[in-house]
Design a protein around this nucleic acid. Structure first.
Length: 230
DNA sequence: ACTTGATCATAC
DNA sequence: GTATGATCAAGT
């Protein structure tokens, strides 16, 4: 019944507290219920709707729509990430972070990297279950910033990966590298190409890639949150 | 079973 | 093509 109350555009939250409160109010609800409130269609599969969950939760929480190269909540400096988990709370997928630069001119330091900034403050929203999209339920969201230990791991991975990218050693970089952060293809399909610098500093065309967080890393965040909620 | 590489939709 | 949001599905 209250599922049928039409809700217009949700205003951006004014504080991290307000954001977290809103997110936690979604806990336990099936995605179909939330979709109905926001007049969004519910796909029967993710096959052609891979970003549906993320877009749905963005709307439900009042994130700025389709903003570019900005946090989901610019005023709060918070990035929103939905995280699919199984019924035991284990992540089902890796988490996309950002594009991996393939040209040395774009490579800076970890501290001023796009990856570090995006991961400096994240609202994780677990999505529980392996049923069809509409039947999956929202879990208990939480705000996260890397601990000193997590930050060290991320920085070490980033340094290792970016060193290879800076050397133009594109044939040596693949998804096997990195304890928490990895580099994998990120494109419409395998034919996509972008400009990159090879080991001889010559411009070549290669597959666009992105940084991703491994499920083992996000799983550890979830486990820690369960033990020591902040 | 898990991971890496491939892929899907949309805005600009 | 690049950026946003991710999951699919082949390979090991």
């Amino acid at each position: 019944m209250d599922d049928e109350v039409p809700v217009g555009r949700v205003m951006p939250p004014r504080s991290q507290d307000e954001l977290l409160t809103r997110a936690r109010a979604l806990a336990g609800h099936p995605l179909a219920t939330i979709a109905k409130r926001h007049a969004m269609p519910v796909p029967s599969t993710f096959r052609r709707a891979k970003g549906w969950t993320g877009t749905l939760v963005e709307r439900a929480l009042g994130a700025t729509a389709t903003s570019r190269a900005m946090p989901d909540f610019p005023h709060l400096g918070v990035e929103l990430k939905t995280l699919p988990v199984d019924d035991r709370g284990r992540p089902r997928e890796s988490t996309y972070v950002c594009t991996a630069p393939l040209s040395a001119a774009d490579l800076g330091t970890w501290v001023d990297s796009w990856a570090r900034r995006k991961l400096s403050r994240v609202l994780w929203v677990p999505i529980v279950g392996d049923e069809e999209p509409g039947a999956r339920r929202v879990g208990a969201a939480f705000l996260w910033s890397p601990t000193a230990e997590e930050s060290e791991i991320l920085e070490a991975d980033w340094d290792e990966l970016v060193a290879l990218l800076a050397l133009g050693d594109l044939t040596r970089i693949d998804g096997r590298l990195g304890k928490a952060l990895q580099v994998r293809p990120k494109a419409a399909d395998a034919s996509a190409r972008t400009w990159a610098l090879d080991e001889s500093a010559r411009w070549v065309r290669d597959h666009p890639r992105g940084f991703y967080l491994r499920p083992s890393f996000t799983g550890a965040l979830l486990a820690r949150e369960l033990l020591l909620p902040r």
